[in-house]
Simulated scan of single mutants.
Amino acid sequence: MRIALALGDAGGVGPELAAKLLAHDDMKALDVIVVGDARVLEMGARHAGVTLDLPRIGADQVGPDMAPGHVLLDLENCAVDGMTLGQSSAHAGAASLQNFGCVLQLAGAGIADAAMFTPFNKHSMRAGAAQLCRRDRLHRRGAERRSQRARVQRPGGGLERPA
């Protein structure tokens, strides 16, 4: 059984709980894809007083034929510098949402048999969702503008892409 584990809110207990869980003897025999930022998991391990040595992988290395054991899919999406524990932040909320979305994709694609997550902060997630939506809107607008520039008017009145 392969489990996909999303790191929850970096400003809360999620990283510490994830580190304790991964270090527990009952978890060592399981295949686990930890999804989140390596810096957040390292911070959690320090707070939990455990040592983790998870190989880091990129999205291109994720698949049904992965080697067994624990791995960290490092999304590099949540710097811990300047983060205050116990305080909500849009940055941590956006990372939590990305982590959770990735875990659901892994389970939906059949790469993971189960999806788990450590605690989220609803306030951070709401602020993070707004941040992600703004970023997505800006990205979509830029893509639409590029697409419009790539089209030229045909003599008959229709649109065509330049050769």
Results as ranks from 00 to 15, higher is better:
residue 26 D to N: 10
residue 32 V to I: 15
residue 132 L to G: 03
residue 7 L to M: 04
residue 120 F to N: 05
residue 141 R to K: 10
residue 55 P to Q: 06
residue 142 G to R: 15
residue 84 T to H: 06
residue 86 G to I: 11
residue 140 R to K: 08
residue 47 H to T: 05
residue 24 H to C: 02
residue 105 Q to W: 09
residue 90 A to W: 12
residue 145 R to I: 12
residue 126 R to W: 05
residue 21 L to G: 04
residue 82 G to W: 03
residue 61 Q to P: 01
residue 130 A to M: 11
residue 143 A to M: 12
residue 124 S to T: 06
residue 101 G to D: 06
residue 109 A to L: 15
residue 142 G to N: 13
residue 155 P to Q: 09
residue 30 L to S: 15
residue 74 D to G: 01
residue 74 D to I: 00
residue 64 P to N: 12
residue 149 R to G: 09
residue 11 G to W: 06
residue 40 V to R: 00
residue 162 P to H: 13
residue 11 G to M: 07
residue 115 A to T: 07
residue 87 Q to K: 14
residue 14 G to F: 00
residue 96 S to I: 05
residue 157 G to E: 07
residue 132 L to H: 06
residue 32 V to G: 02
residue 61 Q to G: 03
residue 72 L to A: 02
residue 77 N to A: 13
residue 82 G to S: 05
residue 131 Q to I: 11
residue 134 R to V: 13
residue 50 V to Q: 03
residue 121 N to D: 14
residue 143 A to D: 05
residue 102 C to W: 02
residue 64 P to C: 12
residue 3 I to A: 04
residue 152 V to C: 08
residue 130 A to G: 14
residue 62 V to M: 08
residue 47 H to M: 07
residue 48 A to K: 05
residue 145 R to V: 13
residue 46 R to N: 04
residue 27 M to N: 02
residue 2 R to Y: 08
residue 78 C to M: 09
residue 120 F to W: 05
residue 150 A to G: 11
residue 84 T to D: 06
residue 67 A to Y: 03
residue 136 D to V: 15
residue 102 C to K: 08
residue 8 G to M: 04
residue 69 G to A: 14
residue 88 S to H: 13
residue 117 F to Y: 02
